[in-house]
Design a protein around this nucleic acid. Structure first.
Lengths: 337, 337
DNA sequence: TTGTATGCGTTATCAT
DNA sequence: ATGATAACGCATACAA
């Protein structure tokens, strides 16, 4: 059985399709009596507006796309949850789309969002460079979250990266660290800020940092286990530990943190006894290590909600200037003895 | 600047829209020369077919929905990856949709999939009972994965649940377990099969099982940390450990496994020394516990690919009978000493 | 207050 | 081989 159309409803209610449309959209004054007739017909036929037809006519839908560089990154799922709860309350549905660290895939997906007339998108970009991508999304209300492309004028929701880098480093120093390695994934704005915070904290505490212990890996693991078997990765850690003799390692994100823990386990290095460990992101799995570590807990709920609200504002044609919003993070001590 | 339409292409190429359509869809013989003209115009205008209009006209799109009971469940992300790789190769795009253990949300989302004319859907259902939901998806090619609703005739992809329950239990017994508690989440077909396997294994090994140590919790944690603070949960574990004095616990899935490990850590119970631990699902975080545990590794890649291929077959109007496909799992020893 | 008619961008039928 | 045209379901300008 096919879905009922507006015409069916009109016929059944004994009115025209225009009237039905008016009832549905409140676009005209309609007599209560006819309104009732129409609503009854709608119920009886279990009629739903066909969003495809509406889209074709109106040029927009009630769908928001969440285009994420790596959905397997648990952090983004948590952002998504916060985003979704706000959007759902406002009548929008969220689709999660995985660009999987693949720029071409991302491009195709953004094009799709445009062609599908999504109401808006929230994006964790794969790369900084959006020269190619900017024209694709030029007509789509867009909010970037977690990472910010260069030279593109849009709303952005970030963490207080520099401050957190500073705070986490201070925490490690307070715990006794003197010779710290900072291991970061790709070298982008976000990571640079975190490293800047690290450097400042070292200076503020009158400690030297070894530039060779600030390492940008340019690795993009797609799943958590990936680094455990990666020789480059093992070499990097071997280097800072055995040759640089660091007493503390800070990881730039949680996939890297997982890799570091794998390494420690494999090499029988005991956290707290042999080395201190701190990381950006606090993800669930860190709470079941039976050793104390320190983490930057980004305010995922705050970030997600902010991004969703910004997008809603844009959808309602609020016209203030684009801006960058930094949501404050906090430093956690996990598995405290 | 607005997107170019077919009309624009037609004008530029000096032909009719019908011809353009024929070129795009290979629906008619078109002279090479005009074909070239059209293709050139398409390139010059950067024309893309408007999927909304096409959908309205044709009644279907190239989008597949992956409607998941809980996207934060890492297992489903991994299934999604496998599904996506197969579908992408065949020209389909996958949207992840989170029903978040909420039956009403799931219903609304399925309706949306229908109204949006998705080509097909792959579903991890929230509940077994699909009386309400069946009519909604009656026209949509659908494959169920991981869980199977009652009395609905569709393709289903599952794990060898009973066999795995048997194998895992045998492994635990081999490791010295005699008095085992099986702790399962909701009481559905899947869990029943796993428990059946457990019972069979006990019998085969001439061991008694205590029916009071087979516990169905009817809890649905939405995130991994949730159980750690849950008193009901703590009571259950207190009960089997302190009153029933079990020497081994088997967990029905990985969210519960995480809760169990949290409990062990909090109570200073040492796995291997004080108790043996086995679980269904092997998820990345289990590899960083520095103690040996045993897990049922479902073949996620195999399951996802099978589901995707089944759906593709249905989309191509293959008309064999609906069936249940059980993909074999294996037993892993994690963090072997 | 309600109805008629048109167009959104496609595709498919039927002419030419 | 190509073109004119209707139809998909809806929303709106305008007429009644």
């Amino acid at each position: 059985m096919n879905d009922a159309s507006m015409k069916d409803v009109a016929t059944r209610a004994g009115v025209s399709t225009a009237t039905v449309s008016h009832v549905i959209n409140n676009s005209c004054n309609v007599r209560e009596e006819t309104k009732d007739k129409v609503n009854r017909a709608i119920k009886e036929l279990n009629y739903r507006v066909n969003p495809t037809a509406r889209k074709l006519r109106n040029g927009h839908s009630k769908i928001i796309g969440f285009v994420v560089s790596n959905l397997a990154h648990y952090f983004y799922m948590e952002l998504g949850n916060a985003i979704e709860s706000v959007l759902n309350k406002n009548g929008y549905e969220l689709f999660y789309i995985n660009s999987n660290e693949n720029p071409e895939k991302e491009k195709a997906q953004l094009e799709m969002c445009r062609l599908e007339n999504f109401a808006g998108i929230i994006v964790v970009p794969v790369n900084n460079n959006w020269k190619d991508l900017e024209p694709i999304i030029s007509n789509i209300p867009t909010v970037f979250i977690d990472r910010k492309p260069n030279s593109i004028d849009r709303d952005v929701v970030l963490t207080t990266n520099k401050q957190s880098g500073f705070d986490l480093t201070c925490k490690m120093i307070e715990k006794g660290a003197k010779n710290i390695a900072f291991i970061a994934p790709q070298h982008d704005d976000t990571m640079q800020l975190r490293v800047d915070g690290f450097k400042n904290a070292m200076k503020s505490n009158n400690l030297e940092y070894d530039p060779e212990c600030i390492i940008f890996c340019n690795k993009r693991p797609k799943i958590y286990g990936e680094l455990a078997e990666d020789n480059d990765w093992i070499n990097i850690l071997d280097y800072v530990i055995n040759e640089k003799h660091v007493d503390c390692i800070i990881s730039g994100n949680d996939l890297f943190a997982f890799g570091a823990i794998s390494y420690f386990n494999k090499k029988d290095i005991e956290i707290q006894k042999d080395i201190l460990f701190g990381t950006f992101d606090d993800t669930f799995w860190m709470n079941n290590l039976n050793t104390e570590i320190y983490s930057v807990a980004q305010n995922k709920k705050g970030m997600g909600e902010k991004a969703a609200k910004l997008l809603l504002d844009r959808l309602n044609n609020e016209d203030y200037e684009y801006d960058e919003y930094c949501i404050e993070a906090s430093i956690l001590t996990l598995n405290k003895e």
